[in-house]
């Protein structure tokens, strides 16, 4: 069960041509797994997350399959996906806090949303209230306008609403990045709580902040320039990554305790290729310290040990 993604390829249509934002993404997610999806801006992590639920232009489906609990999702068909959205697969968008309609009371908004899904609001109300308790929101938030809530409260309200129908998969897009550290911690921990309480079976947490993922994710998938680079358990990614990009990325993160005067960290020289016309082969090749001839071909995403996938020719032999 869970999610299987096979060779998913999504382009962005622009005037200058197709931006190859996501190419041949293949991975799977166990039921109950919280997977962190990390990478730099423009690496395709948001494209991947959004294409699973809302594949609208300028995004263009090019190929690949998505299976959720064994059933194929018609992701390229906006109409047919309606049936799955919110019920089987749901999303907390990046700017969820601003997504709330400012002139509708929160309860009213929830009711309308449920009506659109032909769900009786009254029947769901007790469960809604239970979940509000879960995220420590008072029941009377339903009678408030979004402006009356703080950022952290709004974020949690959106979490409650988007998981109300117990979706199998929840996609959380940068949900902690605009919050202060205390709210960040609270929201992140609530996501884990939601999973534990079965409000959603599994979740993909998209973020650029790997240290948050270390706190809550079971596994982490690292993307680079539209390609999947590495996926493994959180521990493995942080402590013994195998892809050169992951290694450099993790070692460039400043940690409490590291001081410039004592130990200088280094970034990764160079910048990601433009995805309008990316170079052939491994897209990290130009910045990679260990690149060799073989890297002119796209490396396969292979399992080098149980649950540890890497797309790198240097590691492919170890599979």
């Amino acid at each position: 069960m869970g999610l299987q993604v096979e060779n998913l390829t999504i382009y962005y249509q622009t005037l200058s041509g197709d931006v190859r934002a996501l190419e041949n993404a293949t991975f799977s997610l166990e039921g109950g797994e919280i997977m962190g999806l990390a990478g730099e801006s423009g690496c395709g992590k948001t494209t991947l997350g959004h294409s699973l639920i809302f594949l609208a232009p300028p995004m263009k489906y090019v190929g690949g399959r998505v299976l959720l609990d064994g059933e194929e999702l018609p992701i390229q068909d906006m109409e047919k996906m309606n049936e799955f959205r919110f019920r089987d697969i749901s999303i907390i968008p990046q700017y969820a806090m601003n997504a709330l309609n400012p002139i509708r009371k929160i309860g009213r908004m929830t009711e309308e949303l449920l009506q659109a899904k032909k769900v009786d609001f009254k029947a769901v109300l007790p469960e809604l209230k239970r979940r509000l308790d879960l995220v420590k929101l008072p029941h009377d938030v339903l009678d408030l306008y979004p402006i009356e809530l703080s950022g952290g409260m709004k974020q949690r309200m959106v979490m409650v609403v988007s998981t109300l129908l117990d979706p199998s998969l929840l996609i959380a897009d940068e949900i902690t990045s605009a919050l202060d550290v205390a709210s960040q911690k609270a929201v992140a921990e609530m996501l884990v709580e939601f999973r534990d309480q079965d409000c959603c079976k599994s979740a993909i947490v998209i973020t650029h902040d790997i240290s948050i993922l270390y706190q809550i994710a079971d596994s982490i998938m690292i993307m680079y320039a539209g390609q999947v680079a590495e996926k493994a358990s959180t521990r493995t990614i942080i402590h013994s990554p195998r892809h050169p990009y992951t290694k450099l990325l993790i070692s460039s993160l400043p940690e409490i305790g590291v001081k410039y005067s004592e130990r200088q960290l280094t970034g990764i020289p160079g910048k990601p290729p433009l995805l309008l016309d990316p170079p052939p082969g491994c897209r990290f090749r130009d910045r990679c310290p260990i690149a060799f001839d073989k890297c002119l071909e796209v490396p396969p995403f292979v399992e080098i040990e149980k649950g540890h996938f890497v797309a790198c020719w240097k590691e492919a032999g170890n599979a």
Binding site: E40, S41, H208, L248, S252, L253, P254, T266, G267
Partner: peptide, 14 residues
């Protein structure tokens, strides 16, 4: 800034 470039700007500042 992105994680891979931010540390270099920070080093420059230092």
């Amino acid at each position: 800034l992105d994680a891979s470039t931010r540390i270099d700007v920070l080093n420059l500042l230092a």
